[in-house]
Design a protein around this nucleic acid. Structure first.
Length: 894
DNA sequence: TATATCACG
DNA sequence: ACGTACGTGATATAT
């Protein structure tokens, strides 16, 4: 039994686009509509089992309908770029599905479909038409079923003439009359004003057709009759426009539409290209050769020979060790300083790359046993190369067990971050799918998550970890190629990978915290807080939870009747900016501000920090995350030591508890002065900005001089403050609104500042324009060291998304290059400390600042070499400037 | 688990 | 006309 499924391509892709949330692939192309189309195709093929298929598209701008009615489809919103860019993807996908497609200049998909269904009717063939457009219902017949999408695209409703009768009480051809009477706003078909679906249906029940309604119009009473008589011509035209043309010349012949299914590997390759990870998993393309350049190893069977090694059966692994290429260290817990290491998996590729591959799993207990000493030596041997996933975490967690890790030759986690720093799913299962490798079970599916987390029985664990080690091996070669292709191999090998080792060292060293001092400070805060709390309750006339923005909001805005300044999603805002504005209205407000600031210090910095002091070392050991920030910066966790208070004196005191770990030593800090603006001077090449730094001028004063057109001694504090805000704005990717908020001035005034700034710093303006254009052309921006950030939203039609991407394009090369530079300095500094045999230790990095602990006899040399290394880390067109200071605590090194 | 707030560069 | 400054992490509430 032959069966044709014909799809209204334009209609379905539109529906899919609006029904699905945005989705982009790593190249930044939107793919949501194609994804929706794909799921629909898969379901149709499954359910309808077509012997013939066709996807019809609209072609060209003008159709014959425009000849009779120029306004046809007028007033339509332009197709968003996020959708139009998906048409080529869809057409490619259809090829991969082996589904015929057809379009013809001057006709719409409707007409092509109408012609095919007419022919099928004549031959008595069975057809299903798939569309989101109700007009198609006119094609329903004995042989033709019209499937209309419902609720997005997840369901269809199938109409044959009987069902149509049931739902609308109309025969198929009466759909045209319906449209003639009610019109169609989306196609700009007028119909009769005031006649909607309800009225039109009623009229058709009574008269049967547009012609009959018009003929009897004189007998229709009231306003309705009047409108009908008045718009008779509109109704006739509308009916004509709604009529699907069923005689398109040269539509494909029946045998050209025959469909015998898709080829698994071809479709799989297409899905990979589109990065349809979930479909790749769900589809189970099996182990057949997937083809495609990225499918290295995909032909290999899924099987893996896994050996769990115990103390008495070490022999085989020891023999294999020299040939092991990748390993995986599994640990439980987010914080590697406290993580429980489960064990290590070792992967061995066979000589022929296929049949001999093996995985060995060694539980941690075995690894720590006396017999496993050769394995530990191998792990610690810098000359035994091993590929890994997240060497940083592994090194730290193993170090706490006394196990050194050296000789890591490649880290696929770190590489994945460089290849796309905004990708949040950097887990191995996702990377395997992205690179078209055979599917790997997710950690969640093996361990569970949240309360259900549990370590599976050993055999299952061994299997999973060995498979991870295998994926690491396979990914390594693919990612090396991609790093090379992106010109990021030096960034990887010369900077990020060495830095990973430096960071682990800093974290393991840790920084000493004076716990008693911290507790004493907490006591002090506690009594202050108690006093303020009482004062707040007195002013409010009631007790409530000040920490709850909701309860606080009720007190301020309902009980006390203060004005609402701005709102959050859930209610009136009570943030500091609002409270500052409300301060003049009521005494309670300044108490709340004070309470907030002290409560923050108490909870985050006193209590939070106390919890993180390691009982054995008396130090805090932060964990720098090297793969989080989209710009290339580090981030710091458990605890975050990059946001210790400094701006307000009360909070700054916290720094007094950060002390050297050895008596008599000093804390030395060194920070880059204006590194981001210096970077901007370099990459923009702006002569004025460069000159300012070459002459070591105060940059904010200099900016004020140039923007306000005054001399240095005419710049007052307020002018300098404003110039400083403009400089910040420039670095962030300036907007008049943002600047106006920051300076509390009008947008007009802010816009004028910006205009004056750009008039003076024309090189900067050119940079800003150029970088945005570069982002549009390439889809990404880069830092000085070729770190890359993709900005898919740079072409969005949504103003907000696009503007955000534009500001990011301006900011990322600046912030990211600054990050590159201090990372370089860190790697060089670590080498220098070692080369000079110094006892001083690098402890912390705070974006533009490095913190060391230094013995007294090294103070002099460190004061000299730290700034020297940092300033010479890289050569720019302007000098880098570093200011260093030291003292008995971090507080004093200012 | 999401939201609001606030600490840092 | 659109409505926001760039990049992070920790905490307390409320769901």
């Amino acid at each position: 039994m032959n069966k044709l499924v014909v799809i209204d391509g334009n209609s379905i892709i539109y529906r899919a686009f609006f029904a699905l949330p945005p989705l982009t692939n790593s190249a930044g192309l939107h793919t949501n509509a194609v994804y929706g189309f794909t799921t629909m195709l898969l379901r149709l093929i499954e359910e309808e089992k077509p012997t013939h298929m066709l996807v019809a598209f609209d072609a060209g701008k003008a159709t014959f309908r425009h000849e009779g009615y120029a306004e046809y489809k007028g007033g339509r919103e332009k197709t968003p770029s996020e959708l139009s860019e998906q048409f080529p993807l869809l057409k490619e996908l259809l090829k991969a599905f082996s589904i015929p497609q057809y379009e013809r200049e001057g006709y719409e998909a409707d007409d092509i479909i109408g012609t095919l269904t007419r022919m099928a009717d004549e031959k008595g063939m069975s057809v299903t038409v798939v569309s989101g457009d109700k007009d198609m219902l006119q094609l329903a017949s004995e042989h033709v079923t019209v499937a209309l999408t419902r609720k997005g695209i997840s369901e269809v409703e199938r109409f044959n003439p009987a069902h149509l009768q049931e739902v609308y009480g109309l025969k198929p051809m009466q759909i045209i009359d319906l449209k003639g009477l009610m019109g169609d706003a989306s196609d700009n078909i007028p119909g009769i004003p005031g006649v909607g679906e309800k009225t039109a249906l009623k009229l058709l029940q009574e008269y049967g057709s547009v012609e009959e309604v018009l003929a009897q119009a004189d007998g229709i009473k009231g306003k309705m009759g009047e409108k009908i008589r008045e718009h008779a011509e509109d109704a006739r035209l509308s009916k004509k426009l709604a009529t699907i043309f069923r005689d398109v010349p040269d539509v494909p012949a029946w045998d050209e539409l025959s469909y015998s299914g898709f080829k698994g590997p071809t479709l799989q390759a297409a899905f990979r290209k589109l990065e349809f990870k979930s479909l790749l998993e769900k589809m189970d393309f099996g182990s057949s050769d997937a083809g495609g350049a990225e499918a290295e190893g995909a032909a290999e069977t899924e099987a893996l020979h896994v050996v769990t090694v115990d103390v008495s059966s070490l022999g085989e692994l020891l023999e294999a060790l020299p040939d092991i290429e990748s390993i995986h260290i599994e640990s439980v817990g987010e914080n590697p300083h406290q993580a429980e290491v489960l064990g290590a998996a070792f992967y061995l590729t066979g000589e022929d790359g296929a049949g001999e591959s093996r995985g060995y799993y060694m539980p941690i207990g075995v690894l720590l046993s006396e017999a496993a000493a050769p394995v530990r030596d191998w792990l610690a041997d810098a000359d035994r190369p091993k590929a890994m996933f997240d060497m940083h975490k592994a090194e730290v967690s193993l170090a706490w067990l006394g196990l050194p890790l050296r000789g890591v030759s490649f880290d696929v986690h770190l590489a994945a971050y460089l290849l796309d720093p905004t990708e949040s799913a950097l887990a191995l299962d996702g990377l395997a799918a992205k690179y078209g490798l055979p599917a790997l079970a997710s950690d969640e599916s093996v361990f569970g998550k949240g309360a259900k987390f549990s370590v599976p029985e050993q055999a299952k664990l061994a299997e999973h970890l060995c498979r991870k080690a295998r994926v690491i091996h396979r990914l390594a070669s693919l990612m090396k190629r991609d790093l090379e292709q992106g010109d990021m191999h030096r960034l990887y090998y010369d900077l990020e990978q060495p830095l990973s080792v430096v960071l682990a060292g800093m974290e393991l060293t840790g920084i000493k915290v004076n716990g008693d001092g911290l507790r004493a400070y907490g006591q002090d805060l506690g009594s202050k807080l108690a006093g303020i709390m009482q004062s707040i309750y007195r002013h409010a006339g009631m007790e409530f939870n000040i920490n709850s923005p909701r309860q606080l909001g009720e007190v301020l805005f309902e009980k006390l009747g203060l004005p609402v300044w701005k709102k959050t999603k859930t209610g009136p805002s009570t943030d500091a900016e609002v409270l500052e504005k409300l301060a003049p209205y009521h005494e309670i407000v300044k108490d709340i501000l004070l309470y907030r600031s002290l409560a923050k210090l108490q909870s985050t910095y006193v209590e939070g920090l106390l919890k993180e002091i390691h009982p054995k070392t008396g130090k805090v050991h932060t964990y720098y995350r090297q793969t989080i920030a989209a710009t290339g910066r580090l981030s710091s966790q458990f605890p975050n030591l990059q946001n210790i208070p400094i701006r307000l004196e009360e909070g700054r005191k916290i720094r007094q508890v950060f002390v050297p770990s050895e008596p008599g030593w000093f804390i030395l800090t060194a920070d880059y002065s204006q590194i981001e603006l210096r970077v901007l001077a370099h990459i923009s090449g702006d002569e004025r900005l460069k000159e300012a730094f070459l002459n070591d001028m105060d940059i904010h004063t200099k900016t004020a001089m140039d923007v306000f057109g005054v001399t240095a001694d005419q710049v007052d504090a307020n002018m300098r403050r404003q110039a400083k805000a403009v400089n910040f704005g420039i670095v962030y990717g300036i907007s008049d609104y943002g600047l106006s908020q920051n300076l509390d001035i009008t947008r007009r005034e802010a816009a004028q500042f910006i205009e004056q700034y750009f008039a003076v710093f024309q090189g900067v303006r050119k940079y800003m324009d150029d970088i945005v254009q570069t982002a549009r052309n390439d889809g990404y921006v880069t830092t000085l060291l070729q770190r890359r950030r993709y900005l898919p939203e740079i072409t969005a039609s949504n103003f907000n998304l696009r503007s955000f991407a534009e500001r990011t394009a301006m900011n990322t090369p600046i912030q990211g290059t600054a990050a590159d530079i201090i990372k370089l300095a860190m790697v060089q500094m670590a080498q220098r400390l070692q080369a000079e045999g110094l006892k001083s230790r690098m402890l912390l990095q705070v974006h533009d600042e490095l913190v060391f602990e230094v013995p007294p006899d090294e103070l002099e040399i460190m004061k000299r070499i730290v700034p020297e290394v940092m300033e010479q880390a890289i050569e720019l067109d302007v000098p880098l400037k570093v200011e260093a200071d030291y003292g008995p605590t971090w507080y004093d090194a200012k």
